[in-house]
Design a protein around this nucleic acid. Structure first.
Lengths: 337, 337
DNA sequence: TTGAAAGCGCTACCAC
DNA sequence: GTGGTAGCGCTTTCAA
């Protein structure tokens, strides 16, 4: 066991109150006392016990990030952003997978009720009613912010990319290249990002006098596998699109990979675009033309909003921070044959 | 503020001691009392305050995972494994980036001293002497386990892939294909994985009567960029190797990408192998022949060892768990021209 | 500016 | 089997 504040008080000949002040509000203590105490503190490498401090202050000094799947590398950059911002504030980052349960069978969300975290950054828009209830019960409804995804029903601050604008950039670019028959390779049906992106694509297409019939939508999810499956659908189409805009980079990679097995090559035979700009996209063959999302920024902004919330600053219930996206033109797109 | 144990005690007509027992050692209480208490607990949705419990028990019920770079998607799968195992034990996962500092300027490692975490899973073998000292000061030296990487100097339990065997599999396969002039695309010079893999390759090469002269080693790090740089070196070689084994999949992708810019294609002109089997490898073009590491397993095993350590079970100081790797033959390798 | 002391919410010891 | 209670290590009034 290491030293406690009592030991430091005794060793430096002051009260525990003074030690506490020296450490957390040095200006409330004379310079002499401060130096005297600090010397003992340093000499013994004393550290405040955060469990005790937190109990007393009713604060956990940590924040929980909830993801649909911790194993999905897509989230790494967002985590990096979150942690970057939090560490500046001396707040810890707890991560959990939404699917995992506490041994007691309770959802991870109940950690909030356990007073283990001061707030929640949720990266999973598929927020069940039960989760919402759990949140309400924890008295934490106003210490939640969504990042990247968000719940369709709203009700929480959220930080997101400008998904519609991203699709507009993509479609404008493709249309500018001369494509008139453009397909959409979709993410999970109920997913808010997919819905938003699809709507964005449709809108932008309409602006060019183009349409997106259901027959030109490949249903799936955001995965590489789904992209590969879409390739199967593609080759069986009577009238093949000259370009496909995908709801994610992984879809685009899977699709290009799948198509190549049928001798169909991007961009020679079909232009393929992704969305996200994940790390490997620029090195894919062909390098992926895509819409860049600032995932690090998403994390930083979400953490910033949450920190404000925790500090009691007022943030409108439906506050939305929208981060810009950008078009990355690379090698997977070209003028139609 | 939510209800405390006192409220529950009052509401159910028993003492706080009994409520506590009911919740954490139900068998020590009569069935009747238990039911009586549980009803009140459920009715009010009472949850034990973990800050108070932890202070009292001198346990944080959480574990810290330290990575060299949170933004590196390579770690996601390991995190998933760690969290999976931890959640079974009701232990939380705290993540931190080794580069980030607490606002006070202290390293994140000092969190251990703060009593915020019961143990540490370190994914960064580049463990400084200072870090080691910090650890010693925290009285936590025996609650640390390394995963994936490990410190060269040893001294801690570690969970790792069978890196040498991986390289043996790779070289045997390449040699079997008929390659005699094989290059090694290296990771960071001081990195233990790189050292191990390079040594493994050299050993295996020797077994085939082959050598790995320094001129056939492309120095770099594990990144895509480094792979692309290696391509530059490759094209300038007088005698070009017919195969390159890379220290990571990202290196292999970067290399293949870079080479393709010079009209050199894998596997037609050169066979390229990776190491890791990251998620996009199977979908790369050409699909990457690689050595598969069980990253999820690495996480699970590391968490298991750490949980044992925390439980006070004795684990030898230099205990090593080695996980098997496997050869994934795909499309980036072929017989030499 | 400093100290005494209450108390954050819980667990575990001891007594019954 | 149950209750009373000390005390985990800290912060923060209140009084001096």
């Amino acid at each position: 066991m290491s030293l406690s504040i009592k030991d430091i008080a005794r060793l430096s000949g002051v009260s525990t109150a003074t030690v506490s002040r020296t450490l957390s509000a040095p200006e409330k203590v004379t310079r002499q006392t401060r130096e005297q105490v600090m010397q003992v503190v340093e000499e013994h490498g004393y550290r405040v016990n955060s469990m005790a401090r937190n109990l007393r202050r009713q604060r956990a000094d940590s924040v929980l990030a909830l993801v649909p799947d911790l194993g999905n590398p897509f989230f790494s950059a967002i985590f990096a952003g979150i942690q970057d911002r939090l560490s500046q504030a001396g707040v810890d980052l707890l991560v959990a997978d939404n699917r995992s349960l506490h041994p007691s069978g309770r959802s991870v969300l109940s950690q909030l009720r356990d007073a283990r975290a001061d707030g929640l950054i949720c990266l999973d828009g598929g927020f069940s009613d039960e989760a919402r209830r759990e949140l309400a019960a924890s008295g934490m409804e106003n210490r939640v912010v969504f990042a990247c995804e968000w719940p369709m029903a709203g009700g929480f601050p959220s930080v997101r990319s400008d998904n519609r604008e991203g699709m507009r950039l993509a479609i404008d670019y493709l249309a500018g290249l001369g494509h008139r028959c453009i397909a959409y390779c979709a993410g999970p049906a109920g997913n808010v990002l997919n819905i938003e992106r699809r709507a964005g694509a449709q809108e932008a297409l309409a602006a060019h006098g183009l349409t997106l019939p259901d027959s030109r939508v490949f249903e799936g999810d955001f995965s590489l596998q789904a992209g590969e499956k879409a390739a199967q659908v593609f080759v069986e189409m009577a009238e093949r699109p000259t370009a496909v805009i995908c709801a994610s980079d992984q879809l685009a990679m899977g699709l290009i990979h799948g198509l190549s097995k049928h001798g169909i090559h991007a961009p020679r035979d079909v232009s393929v675009m992704g969305f996200d700009d994940i790390i490997t996209s620029a090195y894919f063959l062909p390098a992926l033309t895509t819409i860049r999302q600032n995932r690090l920024g998403l994390g930083v902004e979400a953490a910033t909003v949450l920190l404000d919330l925790i500090d009691g600053k007022s943030v409108p219930r439906d506050h939305v921070v929208t981060l810009p996206v950008s078009l990355q033109i690379r090698a997977s797109t070209a003028v139609p044959r």
